[in-house]
Design a binder for these strands. Sequence first.
DNA 1: ACCCAGGGTCATA
DNA 2: TATGACCATGGG
Length: 192
Amino acid sequence: MVGAVLTQNTAWTNVERAIANLRAAKALSATRILAAPIETLAQRLMPAGYFNVKARRLRNFCEWYLAAGEYRGLRRWDTARLRAGLLSVNGVGPETADDILLYAFHRPVFVIDAYTRRILSRLGLAAGDETYESLRRHIEQDLAQGINDEQALVNVYNEYHALIVRHGKEVCRTRPRCEFCVLRAGCPAAAA
DNA sequence: ACCCAGGGTCATA
DNA sequence: TATGACCATGGG
């Protein structure tokens, strides 16, 4: 959950350093994060970038998390309520909320990130101007075909998104370089 | 000396 | 509601 907040627009390797700092200071828990002075927290988050912003966001999240009864309390919330709760925290947007829902609470929610948008766009499966929600529902409905077991669905969303992240950097950011992209076979610009 | 990384919020018009 | 500024480090 901490990683979900720290990885906002940030390379995961930098997030790992920040988490290592928290761990080394024995400050990797909601109460410990709230106990430290915010300047100290920000200092520990420095490798992850945006450290002043993220220190505030982590605190906001931890306050909500403790007030909501931590994992033991939250795990009994239905997914819609849990998602609304996460989104009510200043600093937690749709992607961060869904990261937490899928990877921490094992809920059947597909995470839409920059890589997902880019890949779908390259494949001609999305125009690029879709809202987060519409794109999410579309993919969820598509991937859920033939799967009736909830746990199996979580596994599919988990693995599918993980693969997108793992290979996302191999997809060219701009169309002009599309001929070098791993998706060239399905890329409209490459065919042109 | 660039560009980029698994976003989100806030101030404008 | 729709853009744009802003946040800031580390690797390529």
